[in-house]
């Protein structure tokens, strides 16, 4: 158990170290996410006040588009340098590799949101500093990284992966998008935990189902 946790930590640490040196993934997620928020703010006229559900929709569409770009980028580095082969050859089980990558991608998405969210709050005039909203973001980030890592690992050798990856990822995360948009919209309207719980439960169930499924088939995903 201790060894597995250490291996997960080491894989995530490796990804973070590479990121610290070239800043590829975080820059692409936060940059792309911010640009989409800007475009929406121009399209919807910044000065006027938007309804909470429209604003939540804009926020989560931007984050989901940006996340998949970043996750794709993080796997592109592995495929360019053939380092995934090296990871597969390492004497650790395949689910550990998957979990390490999930942890790395989760951290990248969360750090990028720290850039995207304040810009969103400034442009659309909504308060984002609440425990409910932070929970909503963290749960959604887990889902994005679990499903994103799964699909990015599957499509590492495919042609035109920049197109195919979002095409697979976006329809599959619809349950998380629905629940995050609805929960965020309720938080912006000032509703409490009781109203939000059903949406959080849905996200937790989604995350667990996909995490268990991915761990279960990790041997097939990373087969030689």
């Amino acid at each position: 158990m201790k060894n597995s946790l250490l291996s997960i930590y080491n894989i995530a640490k490796k990804d973070l170290l590479i990121e610290l040196r070239n800043k590829d993934v975080i820059l692409s997620i936060s940059g792309f996410g911010t640009i989409i928020i800007f475009i929406f703010s121009f399209a919807f006229d910044v000065g006027s006040s938007l309804s909470s559900s429209t604003a939540a929709g804009i926020l989560w569409s931007s984050i989901s588009f940006a996340s998949i770009t970043g996750i794709n980028r993080s796997f592109m580095l592995e495929s360019e340098n053939d380092t995934l082969e090296a990871l597969i050859m390492a004497p650790i089980s395949r689910d550990i590799i998957y979990l390490g990558k999930v942890v790395g991608n989760f951290i990248f998405i969360t750090i990028s949101e720290m850039v995207i969210l304040p810009i969103f709050a400034i442009l659309f005039n909504f308060s984002i500093l609440s425990l409910e909203f932070i929970t909503c973001c963290l749960l959604a980030n887990i889902g994005f990284s679990v499903v994103g890592t799964l699909f990015a690992s599957l499509s590492i050798k495919v042609r035109a992966r920049e197109v195919l990856l979002p095409m697979l990822f976006l329809p599959c995360i619809i349950p998380i998008l629905f629940s995050s948009i609805e929960a965020t919209s309720m938080i912006f309207q000032g509703k409490g935990w009781n109203d939000l719980s059903i949406w959080f439960q849905l996200t937790v169930a989604f995350n667990l189902i996909f995490l268990i499924f991915s761990l279960f088939i990790s041997n097939v995903i990373y087969e030689d």
């Binding site: 697979l168 599959c172 349950p175 169930a205 989604f206």
Partner: peptide, 18 residues
């Protein structure tokens, strides 16, 4: 991918219903 599609269906239906 085909199995993921099938696995996702009840979740999508539940979310869309809510």
């Amino acid at each position: 991918i085909a199995i993921i599609g099938a696995l996702d269906t009840p979740l999508i239906y539940f979310a869309a219903n809510l």
